[in-house]
Design a protein around this nucleic acid. Structure first.
Lengths: 169, 169
DNA sequence: GATCCAAGCAAATGAAATCAGGAAACACTC
DNA sequence: GAGTGTTTCCTGATTTCATTTGCTTGGATC
């Protein structure tokens, strides 16, 4: 028999222990790793990792697994952030309907000198202009201001912080 | 023998045919599908899908596969966009170094009334404040302006447009 | 119309995910 | 501190899926 080195620790408010967090960091970076590989990295057996991932999925911590595509290579070289100021609160039905457009990637309501921030990716300036005019037409929209990305130096998803150094990576 | 329904078409400038684009849309949404399932959805055999995905990966169209995590559930409930105005162009080494911090998710240089846009996700107002002060200290940084997200109504990655309707979804 | 190439398929192989049975640690209660 | 239930883990099957192989065909080229 083997003396299992089990260390229970859920010191974190999120209910995730150290191993969970490490796993999540690994998966947020690259989710197509075999459990066998992950299991070595977190010092567990493959089925144990499987079990944890299943739980994290069930609890909604892991929302899904997606392929990261290259904007330029799929024909959408133009990335822009659009600030939208509106009459009221901002998040109306026609605004929400914008998510049907393939080039709208994110929609947030925010505090600050604007109401909405949209992240969009267009195939051409003309396409971006069309999108803008479409937004301007929406009932309640006062104005828009665009920020076209010249370069993207980092783009990744949420990732739990390491132990409690509270910083690195 | 079966009469293969082969339709060659690469009408798109990106070099991706209709099937590639459909595949990419499927994978951008959910990348943990068996090839057998994908193969039905695009009317191909599993090995054919495998072949295509391999090519798309090799060509960098698919940059990778990542797990999408829930910001709140991993203890980072605060999402914010930070505009940074700087002396010169903006993208200096110390700014780039910010990517070492786990809560910085994106860094873009942009046109418009700011130089840089950062997307960050923090565990608390205090943590966000610390990050802000850290940015302010960077050589060449003139000012920052923050937009804290109240609600996120859409958040996804790049995705090729459908056929040529140029719009839906 | 002969030849070449790209892309496909079915069948076979190998690798990985998943399931099962049982043990250890932990967290309770008494 | 012994008893008991629950959680998490491990090893060893079993099954599912990815990947390889070998061959076929449609289309392009000459």
């Amino acid at each position: 028999m083997k003396t299992n080195a089990i260390r229970r620790d859920k010191p974190h408010p999120s209910g995730l222990d150290q191993t969970d967090r490490k796993l999540l960091r690994l998966l947020a970076e690259r989710a197509d790793r075999p459990y066998a590989e992950l299991s070595k990295l977190v010092n567990l057996s493959a089925p144990a990792v499987h079990e944890r991932v299943k739980r994290l999925r069930r609890d909604g911590v892991i929302q899904g697994v997606v392929a990261k595509l290259d904007g330029e290579k799929i024909g959408c070289p133009l990335l822009a952030f659009i600030h939208v100021t509106t009459e009221g609160w901002g998040m109306t039905r026609p605004i929400l309907a914008l998510q049907e457009l393939a080039d709208v990637e994110e929609i947030h309501t925010v505090t600050g000198d604007t109401c909405l921030i949209l992240k969009v990716r267009s195939s051409s300036p003309a396409s971006l202009e069309k999108l803008l005019s479409r937004i301007q037409e929406v009932e309640g929209v006062r104005a828009t201001q665009s920020y076209v990305a010249l370069g993207t130096y980092l783009e990744r998803g949420p990732m739990p912080e390491l132990p409690e150094t509270g910083e690195p990576r």
